[in-house]
């Protein structure tokens, strides 16, 4: 079974033998509306406390709006499918994947990116802890890890349980290592700085 055309017989309705002409492209995708454009829309985004009026293609994700239209490139595109967490931002204080939000569905919401958490001269405690514990290597996933950690610590404070919480009904959540690991699992670090990231977060949580 190593012949492409043989196995694609079913697809193209009969008898495509070896060497047959195959087509691809939109053939296997749902057909888009012919020639349609996407009229731009006005979007008002509040990011790191500043209001921005943008005119965007409706398809623009919050991630691309931040990066390409607001020059806030700290938020990273690692996969564009919610599978890595590099694009994590805080929306109304809640951590979310900016790649899976349309920019135009985010109007009226308070968006905080890594640039809004702290500056080099005035780091957020979680940022400081990441530097001290070497909670990164290449640094690409780092803004997402940090935004996620900030959101995650707030969730702990609110008493939101996780998959590893021993007592679901408990009102208060412990800032334990296993809890942090489980809750940070939506942020992949290919350099695998995981032990240092967890140490940094535990340190910052203690100081916060």
């Amino acid at each position: 079974m190593r012949n492409t055309s043989v196995t694609r017989r079913g697809l193209f309705g009969g008898g495509a033998a070896l060497g047959a002409t195959l087509q691809s492209g939109s053939a296997l995708a749902q057909s888009p509306p012919p020639g349609a454009g996407a009229p731009p829309v006005d979007v008002s985004l509040k990011v790191n406390g500043a209001q921005h009026e943008l005119r965007l293609d409706p398809r623009t994700t919050l991630l691309d709006a931040l990066r390409e239209h607001l020059a806030l490139t700290g938020t990273k595109k690692g996969c564009d499918h919610g599978q890595c967490g590099a694009c994590t931002v805080l929306i109304d204080g809640i951590r979310k994947n900016s790649c899976l939000n349309l920019a135009l569905s985010c109007d009226d919401l308070e968006i905080t990116t890594i640039e809004g958490l702290g500056r080099e001269e005035a780091l957020h405690p979680v940022q400081t802890a990441f530097v001290e514990h070497d909670g990164f290597q290449c640094g690409f996933c780092t803004p997402g890890q940090i935004c996620s950690a900030v959101g995650m610590l707030a969730e702990l404070k609110r008493g939101l349980p996780s998959a590893v919480t021993p007592e679901l009904a408990a009102a208060a959540m412990e800032v334990a290592e296993t809890e942090v690991r489980e809750r940070m699992s939506g942020n992949i670090c290919r350099c695998a700085a995981y032990p240092n990231i967890v140490a940094a977060i535990l340190d910052a949580a203690g100081k916060a």
Binding site: G82, G85, I94, R95, K96, N97, N101, M152, S185
Partner: peptide, 8 residues
């Protein structure tokens, strides 16, 4: 999923 995805 993940914390972020569950939030959304």
């Amino acid at each position: 999923a993940s914390g972020q995805l569950r939030n959304q």
